[in-house]
Design a binder for these strands. Sequence first.
RNA 1: GGGCAGCUAGCUCAGUUGGUUAGAGCGCCACGUUCACACCGUGGAGGUCACAGGUUCGAGUCCUGUGCUGCCCACCA
Length: 1036
Amino acid sequence: MTELAKHYDHRAAQARCRALWDSLRAWHAEPLPPGSGDGRIFSIVIPPPNVTGALHVGHALNNTLQDILVRARRMQGYRTLWMPGTDHAGIATQAVVERRILEEEKKSRHDLGREALVARIWAWKEQYEERILEQLRDLGASCDWDRLRFTLDDQCAGAVREAFLRLFKRGLVRRGKRLVNWDTFLQTAVSDDEVFHEETKGHFWHIRYDVIDPKPGEPASVTVATTRPETLLGDTAVAVHPDPAAALDAADRDLREKRAAASSKDQPTIDAAIDDLAGRRRDLLPLLKTLAAMAKDGRQVRLPLLARPIHLVADEWAKPEMGSGCVKITPAHDPNDYDVGLRQSLPMLNILNPDGTLNAAAGPYAGLTMKKAREKVVADLEAAGQLVQVEDRLIDLAHSDRSKTPIEPYLADQWFIRMGELAQPAIDAVMSGRIRIVPERYAKGYVDWLSEKRDWPVSRQLWWGHRIPIWHVSGVTEADLVAAFTGHDTISWQPDGSDGFFVCSSDETLPVEGIANKDLVRDSDVLDTWFSSALWPHSTLGWPAATPELACFYPTSTLVTSRDILTLWVARMVIMGLFDTGEIPFREVSIHPKILDRYGETMSKSKGNGVDPVDVVEALGADALRFALAGMATETQDVRMPVDFQCPSCGHLIEQTTQNRTKPRLDCPKCGTAFRTQWAKTEVDLALPRGPAVSEKFEAGRNFSNKLWNATRFVLMHFDEADSATARGGLLAAGDPFAAAPMEDRWLASRLASVARAASSAIDEYRYAELARVLYGFAWDEYCSAYLELCKSRLADPAHRDRARSMLLLGLDTILRLLHPIMPFVTEEIWQQLGAVAGNRRMPWDDPDSPLPESIMTARWPEPPEAWLDTKTERQFGTFLAVVAAIREIRSRQNVPPRQKVPAAIRAPSDMADLLEPMRQAIESMAVVELATIRPDAVGAPGAATASVAGCEVFVDLADLVDVDAEIARLEKDYAKTEGFVKAKKAKLANETFTSRAPEAVVAAERVQLVELEDRLAKGQESLAAFRARKAQAAS
RNA sequence: GGGCAGCUAGCUCAGUUGGUUAGAGCGCCACGUUCACACCGUGGAGGUCACAGGUUCGAGUCCUGUGCUGCCCACCA
C-alpha cells in the first residue's frame, strides 16, 4: 500500500483539506424550502471580528469553539449554518486609519475631508477583511463562505435604517443634550465603555468665592475644592445642602450602622469618621445653615477671575460631610453637576471647543488648551489671593480607550434610544429561560445591567459608520411635511421642540432636498457601531425582507462569545432582535474564558504579550492550535497561557517577562542569534530573522496529531493489494460483531459507546475542554497504548487477522469522527487515507444505502448502540491492565532489560483466572514475560518478586537478576502504605456512628476494601520476610 | 463602595449530586530506539487542595469568616 511518511505533514494536509472542502462546498447551508416542515436546524452567527487588524489568539479561541459546535451538529445531521462576517467597528477603525495617515502623511481627517477619509477606510477594510478571512480559513472555520456579510454592507445598512425608523416611529428615539466623554484627539464622543481610568498624581485646590454684598452675620466668602480648577470658568453656581443638619444626622446614622456590622479591625476607621462628623457639626454646621438660608434667598457669589455673579443654590448633591460642605457646579462639564443644573434650572455654559481648547465663554482664557488654562487659572487665583490651599492627591483620570488621551466631559447634542420599554422583554427572555446563558452565573450581570434601563446614546461624531438617517428642517409647518411626504411610509417625523422637525427615513435619501424652500439637512453623526451589531443575527439573514434564510435559521441556536461584551453586544442583540422580529436572536449563549498571559494580564497588541495564531498554525498546525484552545475552554472565567519567545535559529525558548516583552530585538542566550519580535520598527531590526511568540501549550496538540497519524500508519500497514475489495471494505458488515468476541473487542466496543456518549453530551453542554480531554485520553491511552498493542499478535495470526483489522478500523474511524470537530484537518487527511484503502467500510451508524461521503465533514456522527455498553467487561479489562502494570513496575524497579523475557506466574481466584487465561498471550507480550500458570494455587519460584493487585498475586521470577535490596525497599514502602490504609479503614469501621449512619452500601464497600487491603498486607509481609531471609542468607 | 470569579503537583488546569488511596498535560528523574510513532515507550518522584472556624459518620467538594489575585459595575467637588 501507499507508504505514509513517518510524521504528519500539517502544511500539506491543510492545503489539501481546504481545497476538498471548498470544492464540495461542504460548509454551505441552504434553507429549507418554505412549508417543508421543521427539520433539525442549527445556526450560529459569528461575532464579527473588527476590521481594525489581524485576528489574535482570543479570536482563534472564539472561532474554534464555534467551529466545534458547527462541525459536530453538521455531522449529527442538522441543517447547519455558520454565518461569517466582519464588523466595521466605527471608532476603532477610524482611529487606526486616522493615526496611520497622520503618521505617514502628516494629514488630519479634516485635511482629507469626509468622503476621502471614508474611501481610505474602505480600502483599509478590504485589506484587513481579506486577511481576517484568510486567518479564519487557515483555522479551519467551516463558515458558509457564500454568505459573507459586513456590518456596513448594503444589506446591513438597509436593516439599520429600517430598525432605526421603526424605533423613531414608536417614539423611542430622542434628541437631547448630554454630557459625553469627549475625545479631543479624535474629536468625538466615546461611550462609557470606551473609557478607561488611570490614576495620576494631581492636586486638590481649595478656592474662595466671595459672597456678593454680604449682610451682617453672613460669611464674606465660601470655599470650594476641585481637582480641575480650570472648570471654574464654566461654573454657573455654588451648591450647599438645603438641610445640612439632617444630612449630617443621616450620615452619622449610616456610619453607626456600618460600625455595628464591621470587623474590629475596621472599627477605628469608622470611629474616626464619626468623630469627624461631630467636629463638622460643631465647626461647620452654623455656617452651612446660614449658606442654605442664603441660597433659598437667591443670593449670589462672585466667580473668581471672571467676576461673573453666579447663584448660590440649595441642592442635596452638596454633601455637608465632605470637604467644605460646598461644591462648585459646572453643569456643562461634569455628570453630577449636570444633574444639579437640570434640577436647579441653571445655565449650562460650555467652555470647550471640539479640539480641546477653551472657547469664547472662557473670556481671557479662550484659545488655551485645558492644560495651559489650568496653569494660568491657578497662577491667577494665587495672584488674586483666592487660592486658599493646595493638597497633593491621586486622581483617577478618564482616558479614551481609542486615542489614549484624557477625556473632557463635554455637553453635546446626541440621539438616544429610550430603553424603558425595550429592556424589559430582554430581561424576561433570560429570566424565563427562553434564552439560556452558559455558565448560568453570567445571567446576573446581564439582568442587572438591563434593569437600569439607561437610555442608549447612539450618536458618534465620526465619519466611518452608518450615517444617522435623520434630516432636520426648520421654519416649516407639519402641513408642509404632510404635503411633501404623503404616500411615503418609509418616512416619519417629529417636532424638534422649536420651529422645526426631525425627519427620519429608512431610504438612503429623501425624495426631496427641501421643503417650502427650507433645506433638509442630514445629521452629520453616525450610529454607535453596536447598533448595527445589535441587528447582526437577523440582518445577516435578510431582515427586513422575509427571506427563506430568516424563516429557516432564525432564531439562531447558539451565540459563542466572551464575557466582556455580554452587555455591550449580547444584551443589545436580544433587545433589537425582539423589537424587530418579535423573536429572541438565539436560544443559548456559550460564554468562554479570556486568555491571559503568564502574569494574568489580558493579551493585547499594545502590551505585546500576545501569541499570533498564524505562528502556531504554521509551526504546529491548525489542529494543534485548536486542540490546545479547546482544552483551555473550561467554565472558569480566565485561563493563563505562558508565552515564550522562540529563537529562530536554535529554537531555544526565552521566557517572556514584563521587562523583555516589548523589546524590538532580543539576543538568544544560548546561540547568540539576534532576532526581531513583533515590535521591530527600524530597518535594522526588521532585517533580523523573526522570533515568534510561542507557547508550549500547543505542542500537545501537534504530538496528538502525529500520534493519530502513526496509529493510522500501523492500521493501514496490515491492509495490502492482495485483499479483495470486499475484504477491505466489508469487514464490519457481518452481523453483531461482539456477542462471541474476545474480551478486548467487547471492551473496545463498550469504550467506544461510552466515549461517544460522553463526547455528545460534552458538546450539548458546551464543555469543550472535557470533550478534548476525553477524546485525547481514549485515543492515546486506550486505543493506541492498549488496544493497538493487543492487536499486534492477533494480526500475525491468520485466524484472527480479519477480525482484528475490522476492529482496528472501527475504532480508528470512530475516533476520527469524534475528533473531527476539534481537529478537522488531521482527521480529514486520515479519512482520505482510509478511503483509499478501505473505502467500502461501513460503520453501524452509516446509512447502508448510500456511499460513504467524500469528506469526513459530512460523515455521520458515531452513535453506538446501547447494547455495546458492557461495564462488566470494562471492569475486567481494567484488572488485566493492572496486572500488566504490576509486572512492568517490578521489571522497572529491578532494572530488567526491556526486551528480556522473564518467567512469571499469577495466583488468582478461579473466576479471575478464567478471565485472565484468554488474555495470557496479551499479558506475555505487553509485559514481556513467559507465563507459567494462572491458577488459584500458583506459586512463584523461590525468591520471585511479587506484587499484589486486584486480588491476584503476581510472581516475577528474576532468578539471579534480582536486586534484593531494591526489592526489600519497594516492598517496605508498599507495606507501609498499605498498613496506613488498613489502619484508617479499621478506625473508620470501628466508629459506631459511621457504621450506623452511613448508607449500607458505603459501609459494605469499606468492609470489602478492608478485607482486600488486609490480604495485600499479609502477602506483602510474606514477600518481605522471604527477601529478608534471602538477604541474611547471602550475608552469612 | 457593590457584585462576580479564582486560589488543587514546579507551571497551566481538571475534579459532576459530599463517599475508596485527589487526576491530566507540560516540566523533572531513571531506563529504552530493527519490530506505527523519540512529535515515542515503560516506570518513578512530586500535593497540609490559600488560611481559620463550622455542619456532617465522612469535606478539595457544603456554610461562615480572613487573606491574596483577577474581572465587572458605581463613585470620587
